[in-house]
Write a protein that binds this DNA or RNA. Structure first.
Length: 260
DNA sequence: ATGGTGGCTGTGCCA
């Protein structure tokens, strides 16, 4: 099964590039982040026309996540436990049936956390701890789990073109890196890093001319439970998507292939 | 070191 994640920075602004990419790459599942719209305004007709069912957890103007699937999708569940006052739409989970078993997929949009220090950074760390608890719970069933999306964390120096430029940024704080490692230490595998040990592979370039200089960072990650890692076949970054349209997202898709 | 762009909103907020 081919499963992808993509922070589109508004699903409406990116509808044409998204449809073009779906036709070309034809993933079985696509997790979207930053759809920036409410459920009612999600362009589901356009995706359904390509054969995708849509699970949507939207929000007006900000955040918002979705899961598109060509395969049967059930147990669709929005939100992370642990803070009933948190009204950001940042997490959506679904159970997807492949030709060779099931996989639980989560579409994740972790908080940015800037400026740091401050309440937004505190929220980021608290949110990541809630994600860790969910990740731990999901291990009990010993089923394949894919936790994918925009983690807003640069794991290591080699995941940034200019690591020194990020030392004061929330995405590169030791506490943020530790929060990601804490999830990995439960037994989750960074699918891209497991297959590509070298640096210089990025998923995000800001709109301030960074693409032209390849001043990128790797912040969109695919975490696999042990049962999913057993079935890992491939993982790659769809870098060409950044240059494929006139108004691209600041993120590009990451694709993982699992024998499921 | 700074400020640059983009999307959605509503003349600012968030990234």
């Amino acid at each position: 099964m081919k499963i992808a994640t993509w922070n589109v920075n508004s699903v409406k602004a990116r509808l044409e590039p998204a449809l073009t990419w779906l036709k070309h790459a034809a993933p079985d599942v696509l997790c979207l982040q930053e759809i920036k719209t409410i459920d009612e305004n999600f362009p589901r007709d356009a995706f359904e026309a390509l054969g995708y069912a849509c699970a949507v957890h939207g929000q007006k103007s900000y955040n918002g996540v979705a899961i598109l699937s060509k395969r049967p999708m059930e147990d669709v569940t929005p939100r992370l436990h642990g803070d009933d006052a948190d009204d950001h739409a940042r997490y959506l989970e679904a159970l997807i049936t492949g030709k060779n078993g099931v996989v639980r997929v989560a579409s994740i949009y972790a908080p940015n956390g800037n400026p740091q220090p401050g309440p937004k950074f505190d929220y980021k760390l608290a949110w990541l701890e809630r994600l860790r608890k969910r990740a731990k719970t999901l291990l009990r069933a010993e089923e394949p789990v894919v936790l994918m999306g925009d983690y807003n964390i640069i794991p290591e120096d080699k995941d940034a073109d200019r690591p020194k430029a990020w030392v004061k940024d929330a995405l590169f704080q030791p506490e943020a890196k530790a929060a990601l490692r804490r999830i990995e230490n439960l037994g989750y595998t960074d699918a891209f890093r497991a297959l590509h040990t070298e640096g210089g592979h990025y998923t995000f370039w800001d709109y301030f001319g960074s693409w032209e200089r390849n001043n990128g960072i790797r912040i969109d990650h695919v975490l696999l439970s042990p049962a999913a890692a057993d079935r890992l076949q491939n993982c790659h970054i769809e870098r060409a998507v950044r240059g494929a349209s006139e108004k691209p997202s600041d993120h590009v898709p990451v694709v993982v292939e699992l024998a499921i």
